[in-house]
């Protein structure tokens, strides 16, 4: 790679880390999203308000600020905790990777909770009642009736949030993670060719988001195949 002046391998490694961070945040974020959706639908008023508040805060606060809060806040909390146990231990830093994944998973969870709650409530009550009248147990009812429909309703929304999440992983470079964006910054400071490296990063991100958009469209098609008309 002549254009990248030997940084090609580093950039490839950064891309891999970007994808790992994104997938990790997605998995943790889906857990927050499910908990958030369940909380929002809870009959307990306080729990429901907490669930709605969680989504509201995560959707109304800049992702960068959430990352900064988790990173610096986590570092202060961890330093205090360690120094309670070991006197004068000094400064303990939360690793940027963990802080970033935690922060982005919270943001994703805030958005996903809204999507999942909407999808859950979009499943017609009549279908559930029909299942009950057939004597299906709650587990069968969930996995055979509610979940397939819920996935169909939730996928477009979750897909959009997933694309945003991929792009938001670049923000973790601000607290010092050397993923695609962080490594591009490093390469820039050495080679003094900012345009080359930031454009390379941009094109890699573009490839990632475009392939994932295609992937989601394909999954949506798969989930909708029950609705498709047979060829006349």
């Amino acid at each position: 790679m002549d254009l990248l002046q030997g940084w090609g391998e580093e950039i490839a490694r950064g891309t891999l880390l970007t994808m790992q961070v994104a997938v990790l945040s997605l998995l943790v974020g889906l857990c927050w999203g499910m908990l958030g959706a369940l909380a929002q639908m809870s009959p307990n008023r306080a729990v429901a308000a907490f669930g709605r508040g969680f989504s509201l805060v995560m959707r109304g606060t800049p992702e960068l600020l959430v990352i900064l809060i988790v990173y610096f806040g986590g570092t202060v909390a961890l330093t205090k905790a360690v120094n309670l146990v070991v006197a004068d231990f000094g400064f303990v830093e939360v690793p940027p990777l963990q802080a970033g994944v935690f922060a982005l998973s919270l943001v994703f969870g805030g958005y996903a909770a809204e999507v999942l709650r909407g999808a859950w409530q979009s499943v017609p009550m009549g279908l559930i009642e029909a299942g009950q009248s057939l004597g299906l147990g709650p587990l069968v009812l969930f996995f055979k009736i509610r979940l397939p429909l819920l996935m169909r309703f939730a996928l477009p929304g979750l897909g959009n949030n997933w694309i945003s999440l991929i792009k938001d992983t670049s923000l973790i470079s601000v607290v010092g993670l050397h993923e695609l964006m962080g490594l591009s910054q490093m390469a820039t400071s050495v080679t003094r060719q900012p345009f080359t490296f930031y454009m390379t990063a941009a094109l890699i991100y573009l490839a990632l988001t475009l392939t994932n958009t295609r992937l989601i469209a394909w999954m949506e098609g798969r989930l909708l195949r029950g609705e498709r008309r047979s060829a006349a």
Partner: peptide, 11 residues
């Protein structure tokens, strides 16, 4: 729409 805003700002 397909690239992170941070990359655009730095670019």
């Amino acid at each position: 729409r397909g690239t992170p805003l941070l990359v655009q700002v730095f670019l």
